[in-house]
């Protein structure tokens, strides 16, 4: 692994700044381990709730020319079940437990369940296609501040708030998370979207609407990270369409201290982590910079 991409964020040492994004392959502890084996510097679990959930009816995923739409519906075996399976297992890199809930109390309970087996907490305040959770609560700055402060007081681990791009107030929401005590923010989750089959005239996703990920949303992520960097002082984790070294570097220049890769593990191979890391290391060496110095460089003339 390239040593000039080793970094420290949220008090955690990362072999490289590329984390596996929530909900992609990380549905089991084995999936998390595979991503680390393929070069991920850290991993985020599938979003976990208090109860097991089967998710939405199929089709759950459909490809479009510019990316993928998904409406998984947060299937997960329940936080307790997942934590049980994860405990005693060496994933090989820092693990962020992603959690979703309807209110601050539930978030606090989930935090207590996952904290013993995780190195950090990521709050899913941003899934665009599930009722009463995700972006349904993540677009209300007051509620976001309340949730974050409840979670922060329930754990010693770093707490990250994952934000939705489906609002014109992403910076306000990021600030609310910061005032609640968040150690960082993650941007972005998928962009609300849908697709209709023109021959049968039917929406394709079982849930009718879903979230767009991949290449198409990279420029949206770049702007979100750029704006958040202007408005916030906590570190930002950039996510959305990272599939190549260039797309990773762009988000770092916009202000991301670390990155996550989701769809890239399908459009490329799991080895996307190693490939992006190598390209990033080469770029850093060529430019004669430190990784930390690159963060937010696009803001300086």
């Amino acid at each position: 692994m390239a040593s000039n991409t080793t970094t420290e964020v949220f008090g955690l040492r990362l072999e490289n700044p590329l984390l596996l994004a929530s909900g992609v392959v990380g549905t089991t502890p084995g999936g998390l381990k595979s991503a680390v084996g393929a070069g991920a510097g850290g991993v985020v679990t599938k979003s976990l709730g208090l109860e097991a959930r089967e998710g939405h009816s199929s089709p759950n995923v459909v490809g479009v020319d510019c990316g993928y739409l998904n409406a998984m519906g947060l299937p997960n075996p329940g936080a307790e079940y997942f934590a049980d399976e994860l405990s005693g297992m060496d994933v090989g890199a820092p693990v962020f437990a992603s959690i979703f809930a309807e209110d601050p109390d539930q978030f606090a309970r989930l935090t207590e369940i996952v904290s013993p087996v995780a190195d950090g907490i990521e709050l899913n305040l941003s899934c665009p296609h599930a009722e009463k959770v995700g972006s349904a609560i993540g677009t209300d700055p007051e509620l976001v501040e309340k949730i974050v402060s409840r979670v922060v007081s329930s754990t010693d681990l770093p707490v990250l708030a994952k934000l939705t791009p489906n609002t014109d107030r992403i910076v306000d929401i990021g600030r609310a998370a910061e005032s609640g005590g968040a150690d960082g923010v993650v941007a972005i989750n998928t962009v609300a979207a849908m697709t209709i089959d023109i021959k049968t005239r039917r929406p394709i996703l079982g849930n009718v609407t879903g979230g767009l990920s991949g290449r198409a949303i990279h420029p949206i992520a770049v702007k979100a990270v750029y704006d958040l960097y202007e408005g916030l002082s906590v570190p930002i984790v950039g996510v959305g369409g990272v599939e190549t070294p260039e797309t990773a570097i762009e988000l770092i220049l916009a202000g991301a201290s670390a990155l996550q890769i989701g769809t890239g593990v399908a459009t490329r191979e799991l080895s996307v982590f190693r490939e992006v890391d190598e390209g990033l290391a080469e770029f850093i060496a060529e430019e004669g910079l430190e990784l930390e110095e690159m963060v937010g460089l696009a803001h300086h003339k």
Binding site: V24, V25, T27, K46, N60, V61, M72, G262, T263, V265
Partner: peptide, 10 residues
């Protein structure tokens, strides 16, 4: 299998 393309982890 919910996606078939290596994304969802099911």
């Amino acid at each position: 299998m919910k996606c078939g393309v290596g994304l969802c982890g099911s």
